[in-house]
């Protein structure tokens, strides 16, 4: 149990997917201009990430390892994720129109989101078992949601701030992200302090 808590905490804060691993920067900069869209993107990422990580984990351990073709993992994973996003989109449209309305427009963007395939690959390279994998993926997704939501609130304020002309848009957003990253790396001290 304690190892699960350690995995969860480090996935959520210390190895935060955006601020320390640099995965999913495109939606982080692109979709974070409004709070509502940041929330939608965050939940869509958690949703797709959990399904795709489970499927790719099972595929890797029961098909690719079995037939000794692990070198094909990049190709297999990207195809599975692309197909899966399509399926989820069609399924949601039919089964739950309200959920589709909330997440629908973010789903196509997710195929090219490196966070999804990145986490699928990290689960393999960290050699997690199934339960650890689910916890890790869940908290990586929550970490994504947390950071993108905080960031979107900051950006809404930035719109009204007197920013120098050259820094308008992406540059100031990156510098704000840097300040967030400093805060998140300093949370590492918390673990040392506790233990």
């Amino acid at each position: 149990m304690s190892d699960l808590i350690a995995i969860a905490f480090s996935a959520f804060i210390l190895q935060n997917i955006i601020l320390t691993q640099f995965l999913g920067i495109c939606p982080f900069i692109g979709v974070s201009t409004k709070r509502s869209s940041a929330l939608g993107m965050g939940f869509a990422v958690i949703f797709v990430m959990l399904i795709s990580s489970s499927i790719t984990w099972l595929l890797y351990h029961y098909v690719l390892v079995e037939f000794d073709i692990t070198y094909l993992r990049t190709i297999v994973f990207i195809l599975v994720i692309a197909a899966l996003v399509q399926m989820v989109e069609t399924f949601l449209k039919k089964a739950s129109p309200s959920l589709y309305k909330a997440l629908g427009i973010y789903l196509p963007l997710i195929t090219t989101n490196c966070a999804i395939i990145g986490v699928a690959l990290l689960n393999i390279s960290n050699e997690y078992n199934f339960v650890q994998m689910v916890v890790y993926t869940m908290f990586i997704g929550l970490g994504f949601l947390f950071v993108i939501y905080i960031f979107s609130m900051m950006r809404e304020k930035l719109d009204h701030a007197p920013v120098p002309k050259a820094f308008k848009g992406a540059p100031i957003a990156l510098i704000v992200a840097a300040i967030l990253a400093i805060i998140f790396t300093r949370f590492g001290g918390l673990i040392e302090w506790i233990s």
Binding site: L19, T20, F22, L174, I175, A177, A178, I179, A181, I182, T185
Partner: peptide
């Protein structure tokens, strides 16, 4: 060399 430096 840390993540924050990349953003800055």
């Amino acid at each position: 060399t840390q993540p924050a430096g990349a953003f800055i």
